[in-house]
Design a protein around this nucleic acid. Structure first.
Lengths: 204, 204
DNA sequence: CAGATACCAGACTGTTTGGTCTGGTTCAGA
DNA sequence: TCTGAACCAGACCAAACAGTCTGGTATCTG
């Protein structure tokens, strides 16, 4: 079956991810990527017949990690507390912990990067982008319905928009952090998000 | 002094802006830009000696428009009402109006685009990015101080983060809108922002 | 141990890229 | 009207680009 090239393939994806996040997709030349991955052109085009295949593999992997992140953190929150509202707040709290941990680094999201270069990609790639974002909406919307059942919000709000707001805060804070060169804004914006949720649902 | 080429120059900037927002900077080839601007290579390199000069001109122009947008809307709000809190809410309201007006189109921000391709640019470009973002923070922070003096917030919040949140919502909502292909999320997120401000400062 | 197959190295190629150069046009001022 | 400077057209060029090809190596199966 030949030797195992999965490690090399992962190394290429790791390198490509980094390079794409700081140079864009078109700016991430194959030569530059293989140099960063310490491999060769032969290896690259063995694993990715074309550069578009690399793009597909990149967002597929990112979407997978994103999904694990979302569902993992939510599951932990649900295990830690019982009340839906507290689960939601703990959920955001877990992300705050993580943001503080990486406050020294400049964050980045491949979805955002790809969204601003969409013309290079095909429909499957666009679908991954959209469905990944909409998953957050549907998962958190379901949780919000539970929350509202037990803790009626102080004012009427668009629950889909409220669900989206978590994603919005992440993406917006990432852009801000990159523009001003300060990763700490992510934690600050997440704290504000938690405060807003507490106010809306009248948490003590 | 030769004929007037400013119109042609603007056409190049307009075309470049569009192309960059859908293909990224490296993906926006000079040939493609001049084709979109219906001009020639000679004209392009007359106005922009190098492609980096185009990048500088692009963000300079964008930053200028951004500044006008911020200060213009705030001035209008200050003229419409007297109370600082109402001014802030009207300020956001004006952006909601605008977002609804363009709800059918997919929005985009050159700051976000450039932030995700920073390796192509030099320090002056980075400075424009950072100072443009920080202007929102300082301008809105000043307004928030006025608001707090008259309307103490229900809970303690990081006022710089609260000032940043306007920008965060814009950038985040843009990314979301592009990813799911629906410009309406911008208005929805702005409405949520207004609700959050109302709750925090006990308006209504 | 003999294919067969996956994996990889790196020279090579046709195309696209950013950028140059030459020639020419338009217009303000002397 | 002459001159100089800004403006522009488009052929041209060297470098970088994505992708190919040949030759070879590790590993599994029979």
């Amino acid at each position: 079956m030949g030797r195992d090239g999965s490690a090399n393939r992962e190394a290429i994806l790791d390198a490509a991810e980094t390079v794409v996040l700081e140079r864009g997709f078109a700016g991430a030349g194959v030569d530059r990527v293989i140099a960063a991955a310490a491999t060769t052109k032969g290896a690259f085009f063995h694993h990715f017949p074309t550069k578009l295949d690399l793009a597909r593999a990149l967002i597929d992997r990112w979407a997978e990690g994103d999904r694990r992140h979302l569902e993992g953190k939510l599951a932990r929150a649900e295990q830690l507390v019982d009340d839906p509202l507290q689960q939601l707040l703990v959920f955001v709290g877990l992300f705050i912990e993580e943001a503080d941990e990486y406050a020294g680094e400049i964050p980045g999201c491949l979805f955002a990067s790809f969204s601003y270069q969409s013309a290079h990609f095909d429909e499957p790639v666009h679908r991954v982008l959209a469905t990944s974002m909409l998953r957050w909406r549907s998962v958190l919307r379901a949780k919000l319905d539970d929350v509202c059942a037990m803790h009626p919000p102080r004012v009427d709000v668009d629950l889909d928009a409220l669900a989206d707001s978590v994603n919005t805060v992440f993406e917006g804070a990432y852009v801000l952090a990159r523009a001003v060169g300060d990763g700490a804004v992510v934690g600050a914006q997440l704290r504000l998000l938690r405060t807003n949720l507490e106010l809306l649902f009248d948490a003590g």
